[in-house]
Structures are given as C-alpha cells and as structure tokens.
C-alpha cells in the first residue's frame, strides 16, 4: 500500500549499528520512491515502529539485543516486505534461498542493493499480496532447527522474552502451548512438537503427548497405573508420564 500523502513507499530500518543503518540510508538516495519513516536500534523498538507505521518495506538485521530479527518476524502481525541486511551468512543463505524475500550480506554494494530494491518494488507494485511471502518465510524459519535459547511471546502490545532455562514445563492446550515458569503461565501459538524439536535435548524431555519437562526440575518419578507413571517436579506439580515417555526418561537419565 503506497503511502497516500507523499506517494512514496515507506520503509523502516532495524539494525543495532548506526553505521550499518547509514549505509542503507545512503544507498536509498538512489531510490526517491522509498521514504524511510523510522530507524530503530533494536528488535523491541522495531516491533513498535512496524505496528505504528505499517511500512511497505523493512530492512532487518538478525543479530540484535533483546529480540533478534528472526524472533521479531515470529511475532509480527503486520506483513511488510522483509529485506535482511546481515553478516549472518551461515543459515540465512540456506533458509531463504528459495524465498522471494531478499537478504543482503554485509558488506554489500550499491549495485546489489539496487537489485534487491528493484525486486521489492516489482512485488510492491504488482499488487500480489505480500502475506503469502511472509508466511512462507515464517514456515522456513519454522523449519530451521537451531536450538531454542529463549522464547518470544507477544500478548497484546506486550512482548515477553523467556529464557529457556526459566521454563519448568510445557503443556499442550489446543492450538497453543502453555509455558510454565513456576511463577508464570504464558501462551504461545505453537505445537508441542515444535518445541520438542528445538529445545536443548540435554535439558528438556517430552514425557507425554501433552507434556515437556525441564530435566533439572524433576524431583521424582513414581508408578501410577499399570502402564503409566507420574512425575513430580520440584515445585510440587505432578505431570503424567506415558509408557513412551518413561522409556525416553530411562534412556536420558540412565536408570
């Protein structure tokens, strides 16, 4: 959606390094049809700026304080076109090779930047909804299996970041997963299997169709019925353990 007042496309730059933002501003001088409406220096302010301005285009760094570029995408409700600007080549290239969304590897040339903008403008003017693009991107993010060190959750306008170490157990609840920290209960729209695949397998274990527990928080395991067990966490919370769950507990804790 082209900005009605000026007739320009709007863009936001999110990067924690000022010099990196300056490069983009400078390179954009070649593209008067794009107006930078805000520069942000971390994921939090970036998220706010996106919901405030609803820009057409976002230049996004990946490694940033508080929440990184991937985590920002994960909780983003708006659907701007994303161009990654990052030194993070290792999985960026792999993950987005087939995606229409572009990525620029720092340092990049004006020429490379112009190509990327050309592609973006084409998409923006073609009228094809960007929604699909960003959904595809989210899917691909979901398929990368980097170990999850923290979970980012958006509830209303609030963004919560929970370190993996703070998690006591997870419980499946319909389309959501309840994240229990001992003091808090938070909801994230995700499947338990998604968490199972990403949480550090040395620290977490799936003991039941509906439960993943932090190994360090386990207090005791007792038989419950013929084929099932009950596990007590240090907090006193009791969690069901299935036969398969018992098997993996035995393997992991070697008893």
């Amino acid at each position: 959606m082209q900005n009605d007042v000026t007739g320009k496309y709007t863009a936001i730059i999110i990067d924690d390094e000022e010099l990196a933002r300056k490069v983009i501003v400078k390179y954009l001088e070649n593209h008067p049809e794009i107006a930078v409406v805000e520069e942000c220096e971390n994921g939090f302010t970036g998220l706010k700026a996106i919901s405030r301005h609803k820009p057409d285009l976002v230049f996004l760094d990946i490694q940033m304080p508080k929440i990184n570029g991937f985590e920002l995408l994960e909780i983003l409700d708006e659907k701007p076109l994303i161009i990654f600007s990052t030194a993070h080549d290792e999985f960026a290239i792999k993950a987005f090779d087939h995606n229409a969304v572009d990525y620029l590897l720092k340092p990049y040339s004006q020429k490379r930047f112009d190509e990327s903008i050309g592609r973006a403008l084409q998409k923006l003017s073609s009228g094809v909804p960007i929604v699909e693009e960003i959904d595809k991107l989210k899917d691909e993010l979901n398929n990368t299996s980097e170990i999850l060190h923290r979970v980012v959750i958006k509830s209303g306008t609030q963004v919560e970041v929970i370190p993996a170490d703070a998690i006591e157990y997870l419980e499946a609840a319909d389309d959501y997963v309840e994240i229990h920290t001992g003091t808090d209960k938070l909801l994230k729209q995700q499947t338990l299997t998604w968490f199972e695949q990403r949480l550090d397998p040395d620290k977490f274990i799936r003991v039941h169709r509906s439960f993943i527990v932090a190994i360090a928080r386990i207090s005791k395991i007792e038989p419950y019925s013929k084929d099932s067990f009950v596990l007590t966490l240090k907090s006193g919370k009791e969690v069901n353990v299935s036969k398969a769950g018992m098997k993996s507990l035995k393997e992991k804790l070697s008893f």
Partner: peptide, 12 residues
C-alpha cells in the same frame, strides 16, 4: 564482516 560493513559506511 560487520567491521567491513562499518568501513563501507564510513567511506561515504
């Protein structure tokens, strides 16, 4: 690479 990117920015 981030340093090189900073240099790229400073050149301008």
């Amino acid at each position: 690479f981030n340093s090189l990117n900073s240099i790229n920015s400073l050149i301008i």
